[in-house]
């Protein structure tokens, strides 16, 4: 009986991937940061580094 109670109270292991997918604000952070870095910042830096015509 005691063992059963202990088993019920033991928190279930949640896989890391599911923890990520269950956290909307972490997903928001990833979904904004990755395109900001790979697309906007990298793209803007490339445009900014084009030398000006004399």
């Amino acid at each position: 009986m005691t063992n059963e109670t202990e088993t019920e109270q033991t928190p279930e292991h949640v896989p890391m991937m599911q923890q990520i997918l269950d956290n909307p604000f972490l997903l928001l952070f990833l979904g904004v940061t990755i395109p900001t870095v790979l697309y906007i910042l990298w793209g803007v830096m490339e445009v900014a580094s084009i030398p000006l015509a004399d």
């Binding site: 990833l30 979904g31 990755i34 395109p35 790979l38 697309y39 445009v47």
Partner: peptide, 26 residues
């Protein structure tokens, strides 16, 4: 859906494929 969250926005770059000012790497 997670793949969408991470990568779907990056398809924006295909509008700029003919722009000479951006590198092939980007």
């Amino acid at each position: 859906f997670f793949l969408y969250i991470l990568f779907l926005q990056l398809a924006s770059a295909h509008h700029l494929l003919a722009e000479p000012g951006l590198t092939a790497s980007w």
